[in-house]
Simulated scan of single mutants.
Amino acid sequence: MSLLTPPALSIRSYPTTGEVSVALADLFVTLSADAIQTRGRFTVGLSGGSLPKILAADLVKRGDAVEWDKLTVFFCDERLVPLDHEDSNYRLCHEELFSKVPIPEAQIHTINADLLDNADEVAEDYKDRLINVFAAMNSAKFPVFDLLLLGIGPDGHTCSLFPGHSSLENTVDWVISEENSPKPPPRRITLTLPVLNHAHNVCFVATGEGKQDMLKRVIDEKDQEIPSALVQPAHGTLYWFLDDKASAKLTSIDKSDQ
Rank of each mutant, 00 (worst) to 15 (best):
I108F: 08
V44Y: 01
P154A: 12
L92P: 00
E124D: 14
I176K: 08
C203D: 03
E121S: 08
L130N: 01
N112H: 03
H198S: 14
L27T: 10
D26Q: 10
E124A: 12
S47W: 09
A234W: 15
D77S: 11
A229I: 02
K222M: 00
W68I: 02
D257P: 01
D34T: 06
D155Y: 13
A65V: 00
I103Q: 12
T207G: 09
L3F: 00
A248Y: 10
S47N: 07
P184A: 00
E96G: 00
T17Y: 10
K127E: 03
E121T: 07
R187N: 04
D26H: 04
D223H: 03
S13A: 13
P143E: 00
I226G: 01
H200E: 10
H198E: 13
M137S: 08
E67R: 14
I152S: 04
L161T: 11
D128I: 14
I103E: 09
V22C: 04
P184W: 02
P186T: 12
R79A: 08
V172R: 15
N201H: 11
V202M: 09
L80Q: 13
I54A: 08
F74A: 07
L148I: 10
L71D: 02
E78K: 08
L230Y: 06
Q37T: 06
P52V: 07
D125A: 09
G153S: 11
S247N: 06
K141V: 10
T5Q: 15
Q37H: 10
L230G: 05
P7I: 12
K53M: 08
N170H: 09
N118T: 09
D223F: 01
P163D: 01
E105R: 15
I189V: 14
I111G: 06
R187E: 00
L97Y: 10
R62C: 01
G164R: 07
V231I: 09
T158G: 02
S10G: 05
L147I: 07
L31A: 02
S167D: 03
L149G: 02
Q224L: 04
C93R: 07
A199Q: 08
L115N: 11
A229W: 07
K245V: 06
N138K: 15
D244H: 08
I226C: 06
S21N: 00
L80F: 12
P104R: 12
Q107I: 11
D114T: 10
R41D: 03
E121C: 11
Y239A: 01
G153Q: 10
G18V: 13
D84E: 10
D146V: 11
A246L: 07
P7W: 13
A135H: 15
D58R: 15
A65I: 08
P185L: 09
I131F: 07
D223I: 03
N197S: 06
A8I: 02
C93S: 13
V122P: 03
I152L: 06
V172F: 15
T16P: 05
K249N: 07
V22H: 10
A106T: 15
K141L: 05
V175T: 05
A206V: 01
A56H: 02
L51A: 11
A246I: 06
L230A: 09
N197P: 04
S166Q: 07
